[in-house]
Structures are given as C-alpha cells and as structure tokens.
Write a protein that binds this DNA or RNA. Structure first.
Lengths: 254, 254
DNA sequence: AGGTATTGTCCGCTATAACGGACATGTGTA
DNA sequence: TACACATGTCCGTTATAGCGGACAATACCT
C-alpha cells in the first residue's frame, strides 16, 4: 500500500487534474489564469491549458473578465442546486436550523468536514439587529472550530494528527494551538456530546456544537449555535438542550 | 469540421464521461445504480463502474442509501456555493430580484440557458399568501417559457431549430407548439424588449420577461415576473417598466 | 529599442485509461 | 431446484490523453 518515495514521472489522471483545478479556484476565491494554475499546482502548462479548454467547453469553468482568467462554471452551480434539492440530509438539517433559530433567535449552522477542513454547509441567520454571519462553504482549519472537536472524534490520535495539516494548528490570528490539548478537547467533547468555546474568529461570540451521527454511529456532521458571549453565558443550558433536541431526529439519517 | 457519420468506435474522454454521468443524475433527480447509468448513456459498464468509483473517491458523487445507488456529491454543492458567492452576475441579479419583488410583491426570477434548455438561476419569492413558486435549476424546454423567446433571439432561424430538440416543441400538457410561430414570437420579443404570456405550467399565472444583455449586446439572461393573471392584467405597464428598470444596471455586467 | 519574462499554441512520444469480454455473485421467477 | 437476468469485478488490448519541449506572441522592464 505504501508507494515509493521517488515519484517516477507520475502521469495524472484527467479527472484528478480537473478536480485539482476546481479546488484551487475554490480556495483562491477569484479567477485565475491557466498558467497561474499550472504553477500553483506544479502541473505541466500544456496539460492545464488543454484541460481548461475542455472544462470551459463543458461549462465546468467559465471565462471571467476579458482576459484569459477562468473561474468555476455555471454547471457547477446547477449541480449544486440539484444536490441541495435532493439531499435528504440537507433537508432535515434545514428544518433543524429553522427550529433552533426560531427557538433561540441565534445564528445556527450545519457543518461537516470537507477533506481535512471544516465547512459550514447551511446556516440560518438570526433576526437580530446585529447580525452575526459567516461564509458558507469556505474551508476553515479544523482546530479553529468548536465543531472540529466533534467531527474528528471517531479517529484515533494518530489519525487526527495525520489528517490535520500542521499549519492548521493555529488560530486565525496566528497563535499556535497545541495538538495534545486539541485532542484532549476532542475526547472530552465526544464524551459530553457537546463542545463550546469563545470563537477564535472574533472576540464577541461563543460557539456551541453538538454531533449528528450517521447510521453507524460516527459523527457525520454537527449542529451549532453562534451567539454573542453574553447571551451564551445567560442561556448555556437552554442552548445546549435545544441543539441536542434538534439533532435527535437527524441521527442515522444523514 | 463535419465528422463521418459512421462512428467508428469512438473512445470517450474520461471528463466527458464524468460530465455525462453527472448530467444524467441531475436530470433523473434521484440516485441511480452504475448499471442503470451505463445503459441509460449507452456506455460500457466497466468504464462506468470505474468512473463512478473514482468520482465517489473525489466526492463528485456520493453513495445514496445502503445499496449501490449514487447521486451528485457534496463537492459539487461546495463548488456551487463558491460559484454563487463569486459570480458578479448573480450578485447583481440578486439585487435586481430584491428590488423587483419589493416593488411589485410578485415572484421574480433570473433565468438563462443551460445548453438547449431554460433554467431559473435565482428567484425571489413574494410574501403573498398564495405563494407561486418553481424549481430553481430544473431544465425546462425553451418554447414553454416566456424567457425562452428572448434567450434564443440572437440566433438565426436555422440555429434556433438546430438548438431546440423537436420534442421540446410541446406544452407541458403535450400539445404541440408551432416552431414558426415560436420564431415569430422570438423576433417580436427582441424587438419589443419584453415578452409575456399566460404560463404554460398552470392556468392562473402570467409571465413577463425582459432581456439582460452581455457586453457584446447579446441576450445572456432574463429577468422575469410570475404573477397571478388578474394582477398581471391590472399592472402590466408597471410590471414591464419595473423589469426594464431593474435590468438596466445589469447590461454589460453579466 | 533591446532584452527578459510570461503566456498561449503546436506536435510527437508513450504511459495509461477506456474499452470489451469473461467471470463471479446475487436475485427473482418458473 | 433450475433457469434467466441483472449487477459487480477482473484483465488484456489498444486508442489516446497527458506530458515535455519547442515555438510564437505579447507584456514589462531597463
């Protein structure tokens, strides 16, 4: 199973290359030139040019601006809509979020892992005057999130260390996060069925997260509340109870 | 440019095959087995099996249910979100829809072509008690829609006939639509800068559509209002004026 | 203007991915 | 039970897609 160290001229499969291109554009969050993509990925320029051309023809990429820059295409948006409308998990989650925000008046989120990063799949914004919001779908280092403690809790210590890139053990501000302490929090969170802490993204919010289990009992997603710190302190028990109650009908149905 | 008629054992490129699979699943709107997909597409079973396996590993497809059925994967949803958040056209359209529905209290839509079909890309629902809604992203035969008259209006007569499949010249109920009459409506709609008719999808709504032009002056999308027939009759001029005003800032920016 | 760097295009080579067909397994029916 | 059919897996063959490198065109400095 272990491959040789000296990569002896691997020739990449087209689909993998296409995937790399789309992921690179998603991370960049802005259009790029074929050559930029090639250098960023360390891929042959000619291959990237040909692949970009083919993806443009299919609508997987769209031409941006006047020059040669490209970005994710409209086809991907249409596929995304189809996924959204046909995913039982997301439909159930939507109902759960509605219920949570209706009851608590706080921002609620449905989150999962995307590879080795955390992402918000759906969120329900509160009707508060000062609205707390976040970017849906944006990959975030796992250790920076409350949900992250739960989403990796089915893995062993070594698996967790192998999954999370070392550079992700840092706060948004750049301060290091201790892997041992993180893993300790992971174990405690899974045990308690909840994790909460003051957000690392700002200084005025507190995040609660509870697990949503799949049919085999593994943590497949989380439900979260992001609340102003004062609210969080005042309503901690009610918020946690609300989250757990909302997660109940989702277990085994994700 | 013209290929030989007798397809002499064409071997399909992997990316095209993957695209065919995803499109088939999108049209089916439900999970399918690899074999179903193979027979539906007329593709080799072994190739489809291998491709499905690779796409599952990449997250482009997800396993559905317990058995071997697959559907569009979460990755596609995440790409769709990235497109949505980075598309200037959709952002502008969102603002236009908000304005239209705020002013008219009617359902407004932003539409475009997806290949040879019409799709709703974004919509803004009215706050009416009897809400009129439609499925976003679902491909619909061009002749069944008011927007369709505008979206093909940059093509010549022959190009229009070549683009639209013969079976699409039918109402949802199955009644035939005359291609010549359709093309006449196309020309009149482009001339007037608006098209409206009673919806073919039901018996109680009326649809208005105005074009949104790209930088080269071609119709790249449409803005629409779907209203109860009585409202449409009572407010025709105001609705058309509202649509044209909302479309104005979008021209050349799509 | 001259020179350097960057980007897009073209083309032959070859590793390999799509294919076809055989095999194995499971499922429903007579 | 036996048969027919559908589905997943494996493997050798061969068309071809990804690669590397050369070339051309353009932009950006000095």
């Amino acid at each position: 199973m272990i491959k040789g160290e000296d990569a002896p001229k691997r020739r990449e499969h087209g689909l993998d290359r296409a995937m790399d291109l789309m992921e690179a554009l998603r991370r960049a969050r802005e259009p790029m030139r074929p050559n930029e993509l090639a250098t960023l990925l360390g891929a042959p320029r000619s291959s990237v040019h040909e692949m970009v051309g083919r993806m443009l023809a299919l609508g997987l990429l769209d031409a941006a601006d006047g020059d040669g820059r490209v970005f994710l295409g409209r086809k991907l948006y249409l596929f995304g809509i189809a996924y959204l409308e046909s995913s039982r998990g997301l439909r159930l989650a939507e109902a759960a979020l509605e219920r949570i925000t209706a009851e608590t008046r706080e921002l609620s989120q449905f989150c999962a892992l995307d590879g080795n990063r955390y992402v918000v799949l759906r969120q329900r914004e509160s009707a508060r005057p000062f609205r707390i919001s976040a970017d849906t779908g944006q990959p975030i280092p796992i250790p920076q999130t409350a949900s992250g403690r739960l989403l990796v809790s089915d893995l062993g210590d070594d698996e967790i260390r192998a999954l999370i890139p070392p550079e992700d053990f840092r706060t948004p501000a750049g301060a290091p996060i201790d892997p041992d302490g993180f893993i300790a929090e992971v174990r405690a969170a899974r045990q308690a069925g909840v994790f909460s802490f003051d957000s690392m993204a700002d200084t005025f919010t507190h995040c609660f997260a509870v697990p949503v289990e799949d049919a085999s009992g593994r943590v497949a997603a989380t439900l979260c509340i992001v609340a102003p710190i004062d609210d969080a302190n005042a309503n901690r028990d009610a918020y946690v109870a609300c989250l757990k109650a909302a997660a109940e009908p989702l277990h085994g149905r994700i």
